[in-house]
Every structure is written in C-alpha cells, then in structure tokens.
Design a protein around this nucleic acid. Structure first.
Lengths: 208, 208, 208, 208
DNA sequence: AATGAATGAGACTTCATTCAT
DNA sequence: CATGAATGAAGTCTCATTCAT
C-alpha cells in the first residue's frame, strides 16, 4: 500500500504543520483572540482543511496543549529515569525542565501569560487533565523525594510539599529568566537551583 | 455644593459595586466569556451606565485587576513596614500573602486558571503594568534580603534570585493548597515556608 | 407607565413586522434558502434585532407558521360556531377555509410547494404540532359530522374518514385553483364542493 | 465492443444504486440536510463518482424525484389502460395509487413532510415539471371521466374538477392512513373511496 | 444622568464542488 | 475512470458599543 502510506504521511505532515502554527498563534494571542482563519492562513491551508483534521477550535487547542505537555513530562521523566542517586535525579529533573523551557519559549509564554487554561465556560476537560498531569508529576517527584528520606539525603518532611517547593523554585527561576532575560542561558542556573533547594538561603552558622 | 457631593458619592458607590461584581464574574468565567450585560445585570445597573464609568470592557477589566493587585501589594507592604528584623519581615510577608490568598480565593483563581492576562491582541498595557508591579515587588523584597546579607542572616547570593525563590515557594504553597485543599488553613503553613526557605531540604550532616 | 407601554407597543410592532416579512421570504424561498440577513434587511432592522425577539431562525420560522395556522383554525371555528344546522355548518367551514386561502395566497404556497415542514433533521416539534392541530381539526369536524349522522342528513360512516374526505375535497379545489387560477374567485366554488361532498359524482338513476 | 458494453452496464448499475440510496436519504432528511458525502458513502462510491454521473446535488435530487414520479404515473396508467368500463377504470386508478403509496412509504413521506419541492431559490424546473405532470395526470383522468359523462355513469360537471376531487379523496385517504396507520392495509379502502366519490355522504332520501 | 433596544462586525462551522493522484 | 482531500463561500449567531428617549 504505497499510496495509502503516502497519504497517511501527508496527513500527519499537515497535522503537524497546523499544530505548529496554532501553537505560535494561540501562544501570542490567547485562545479567544486567535481565529481559525488566521491559523489556516498561517499553516498554508484552507479553513475546511483544519476541520477535516480537528473537530473544531477547542479540539485543535486542547490537542495542541495536551501533546505539548505530554512531550514535556515524558522528556523530563526520560531524563530522570536512568539516574540512580536521588540528588542526581533532581539535578536531571531541573536540567530537563530548563531545557524544555529554553526550547519552547513561545509555548511557555502561554503559561506565563496565563492563557493555557482560558476556555469557554463549561469546558473543563483540558483544565482537569492538566491538573491531573500536574498532580501526577508531583507524585512522580514525591517518589524519589521519599527515596531521599530513606537514604537520609533529604530531611523528612511532607513529600508532596517538598515536591511542590522544588517545582516552585524551578518555576521561579524560569519565570525570572523569561521576564528579564540576561544573556546567560537558563541551563546555567541548575546548580543555583539545587543549592537553594538543598541548603536554603540561611547563612551557615547564623542563629536566629 | 451638597448636591454635587452626593452625586460624587453615588458615582463612587456605583463604581465600587460594578468593580465588585465584575470581579466575581470575570473570576468565574474569564475575560472573554464574561459579558457586559451580565455584569450590568448583576451590578443592578444598565449597560449604558457601565459605559459612563468605564471606557469599555477592557478598561473595566484592567481597572478591576489593577486595583485588586494594588491592594494586595500595599497590604503586603504595610504589614512588612513596621517590622525591623529581616527574618520577621519575611515572615510578615508570607503571612500577608497567604492572608490575601485566603481572603480572595475567587480572584486568585483567575491566576491559577490563568485568565488574568488573556487580553485582545495588541493590548499589552495590563500585562506590562503587572510585570512592572511584579518586578517592583521583587525589588521591594530584594531590599530587605540585602539587609539580611549585611546582618549575615542570609548568605550572599544574587538578591533578585533569592527574592524570586521566596515568591516561588510562596506560590508553590498557595497553588498546592488551592489545588487540593485540606481542612487546614493556608496561614498555618507560614512556618513551613520559612523553614524550607531558610534551611532548604537537605538533611543536616548529610554529605553528598 | 406611559413609557413602558410605548416600549411594549414598539416591540409588538417590530415583532409583527418581522413576522410579516419572514412569512413573505420563507414562503418564496423555503426555510433553508431564506437567510436571517435577508429577513432583517427586508424588515428594516439589523440581524441582532431579530435575535432579540426570536431565539433563532428555527424559532422565528415555527412562530410564524404556528401563529398563522392558529389564526386559520380559529377563523374557521369562529365562523362555524354560531351556525346550528349541520349542512350550514359545513358550508360555513368551506367558506371560511376558502376565504383564508384567498387572503393568504403566499402563505398557502408554502403548503402547496411543500415547504412548511422542511426542518433541520431532528427538529420535529413544529411537525408534531401541525399534525396535532390537523388531527384536532379533524376531530372538530367529526363532531358535527356525527350530529349529521343523528339527524340523518349524513349516512353513517366512519366519522373521521368523512371529515378527512371533506378536507380532501376542500384542498383539491384550493390546490386546483392555485395551480391554474381562472378569473373566478375561489369562494364561488363553495356550492360545488358541497354538491360533490354530499351527492358524489354519480348520475342519478345510474345503475352500475 | 464487449468491453464498452460492460462499461455501460456498470455505469447504469452505479447510477441505479446511487438513485436508490439518495431516495432513502433525501426521504429521511430532506433535500438540504442530506449531504453528498453521506449519499456517496451509503452508495458505496466516492463523492467524485456522483459528480461523474450527476451534474450536482440538484440534478441528483430532481432526477431521483422525476424518475420516481414517472414510474408512479406510468404504473397507474398501465393498470388503467386495459380496463374498459369507466367505473372499473377509476377503481383500477385508486388501487394502483394506493399500491404505490404502500410500496413507497418512505418516498411518499417526502410529500407528506413537504420536502419534495424545497429547492434553492430560483430553481423552479422540478416544480414546473411536477405541476405539468400533475396537470397531465389530471387530464388523463378527465378523459375517462368524460367517457363517464357520455355513458351517463357520471353526472355532467366540469371534468377537471371531478378529476381533482377524485385525487383529493385519494390523497385524503392516503394522508389519513399515513398519519395514523391502523393495521389494515390501505388497499382495503378502495371500495370506500369509490363509494364516497360516487355517492357522496348524504343519507339517501334526506331532503335538505 | 440612566436606560436598554438596536446595531453590525466578526467568529465558527458546514458542505457542495473541484482536481491532482 | 475513480477517488477523496482540499477548498472557501456563505450562513447563523454573539455581544461590545452606541444613542435616542
């Protein structure tokens, strides 16, 4: 079936193209202000073509965000996977997270500018999935945080809180970097993140 | 002029009323899905009246968000103002921040649900102001962080980064709490925030 | 409340105007080919105004047809109401029916051209109501047909069938007249309808 | 050319198949709600193939209706053709008409549901042909009605009116039967139709 | 000054038709 | 010759904004 294979490939190609351009446009204008017509024009196809591939504007948007998020989470997990030491795992996590942010500046803007979850009233499927994914990611982090408890590299606290704080620090760095980018790359801050996460900000020897 | 004073008072009263209801409605449906007609109905006035007081939907929205944010920042600063000790200042900051979140759950949802900055294409005034406010807040925090450097309660690092991390941890707690609220109040977590912020998560005595 | 009365009057006026023009346009082009924009233009108002008064295209259409049909049925019943004699009742019925057809040629075209019930798939409310109205009308006729049985002016048959046949003959005349209108008025055919309805077409004295 | 014959046969076969399925789909959803894609899918061919055989949606629809109507009229005429006696001719006509209705319930629904003539603005060819066919059918009936005048089985009236009334009664029965079908077959009502057509509904011996 | 009916631009979506494969 | 992906015109409906009352 040479022919049908070519067709399938073309379909996938178009789909990818549309998702790529919709990411750019949704990212820069938000869900509501982006128009199908503009996405179609930018993708080099007609409006109807988008409706051949996606059920509607919502479907296009949620598909775009979901696939992107899935890629982010799986990238991060893959890079953590092979590492044994807990501290090294956390370092890998931060690195992978920062790499994603650097490589997907535009998409991350969606978050910083807070447009990811702006959806028509009543449509909560995407939000729910993202919250689920977030909580699942938190749990994934919790797992090796707990390993850290056992090997006594991390002091015993509520694991979920520790995971949330790690993400909070990561996000703070990423946000700060995106807000006021100096020339340095985000990836160079990994050590700094780990330092603060593990040691906190208190001067050694200081007594309150 | 007694009469014009009464008029001015009525005007202010109406303005307040409209802002109050628009906060509720924008918070629950997002900028685009909220309609002027609904806000007018809820505020007990006519559509036209809203246009007497605000230039348009955008103006109403940005005014609402701005005034709210201003109140938040000034609340926080006021509560930090009288305190001398840096550590105490930070504690006051966290407490004030958490108090605001608890008292303005609905509004904060706007952030978590990412609808604060979703605005028609080309309109960046609100975003710019919010970023400015954020950076100014960061600077405000930086100031006493630096005092901490001097009094050696905080180890010398890039002040801005430390400030950002503090906000990151605060947000992580707030977000976590809003996502999966247990029965405890957010305000009870202040000690925990300070603990992590100052000491980090590493087990004392552990050697990497 | 002089003001609100004026407003209500204006509303009713507009509503009537829109219904009048929508009847003309729906009648000439059918449900699907008529457009809201055209109806609005013809009615001298904007598209949005139609949506202030009617929930949508379907609502406008069904309202128009329903109100028209209701008027037809009630006209017919009113003219039959005062009459005592069964034969006279039937004469009044035929006259009233023919008068309606003559006065509402355009609307009746909707029926002859078979566009009354053309509705989006799944929307059967109008059809159901029209069938109900038809059956109710049949029952209304049945009632005095049965009186005819009792006073022996009509031979005993299934009343419903007799009623349906009466309507069938009425429609045959109306259809014929609309199809190929001579100069004579439809109303002049009443005697002829009654003649055929009561006596049939057989030559007196003929034996099959 | 054996090959071209086979080709022609295949073409005719396809054409028949498409007409068959389009009848089903147009009948159940009406002209506008039926889509070419659905008809193609149901007919087991591609959209483009339909456009090889028919000029467009309208052409397909009018062809379908025309061929069906032609078959109806020719069926009816064929069954009347051999009969000599006028009354018997009329009986044959009614029987043939009822048989068609029973065998083509779905198609007749198109009429009852009034979708036969719903066509895009400006397209009147089908309507005109159907009216012509109707008038021709009326004339065909007139012919033997007039024979009835001559042999004194039918009293002298305007022949066209008598023909129209006959069709009116036939339709009344058919409509009634389709509206509220009991278990009896429509064909059993032929006697009843003839009875009313010939004798009318008046009680013998009754004097107005 | 307040009202809210009217406006109409603009968005999403469908589907008849075409044409490259 | 058959296919069905691509096209884009056209229709319905919403809602921010205006303005006569």
């Amino acid at each position: 079936m040479e022919k049908s294979k070519r067709k399938a490939w073309k379909f996938t190609q178009r789909r990818r193209e549309i998702l790529k351009h919709s990411e750019k446009i949704f990212s820069s204008k938000g869900y509501h202000s982006a128009t199908i017509a503009e996405i179609a024009g930018s993708s080099g196809c007609a409006v109807g073509t988008i409706y051949r591939i996606f059920k509607g504007k919502e479907h296009l948007y949620t598909t775009m965000v979901n696939e992107k998020m899935d890629r982010m989470y799986s990238d991060i997990r893959r890079s953590v996977f092979g590492v044994q030491d807990v501290v090294k795992k956390i370092e890998a996590l931060v690195s992978a997270h920062f790499r994603f942010v650097e490589n997907n500046l535009e998409f991350c803007n969606l978050f910083i500018r807070g447009q990811v979850m702006t959806l028509p009233a009543g449509l909560t499927a995407l939000r729910d999935k993202m919250i689920d994914d977030y909580l699942e990611h938190i749990k994934f982090i919790e797992d090796f945080i707990r390993t850290g408890f056992e090997e006594r590299s991390i002091r015993a606290m509520e694991a979920r809180t520790v995971a949330a704080v790690l993400l909070g620090i990561i996000n703070a760095y990423a946000f700060n970097w995106m807000m006021a980018p100096d020339d340095s790359r985000l990836i160079t801050k990994v050590g700094s993140v780990l330092d603060i996460f593990f040691r906190g900000v208190r001067q050694d020897g200081y007594q309150a």
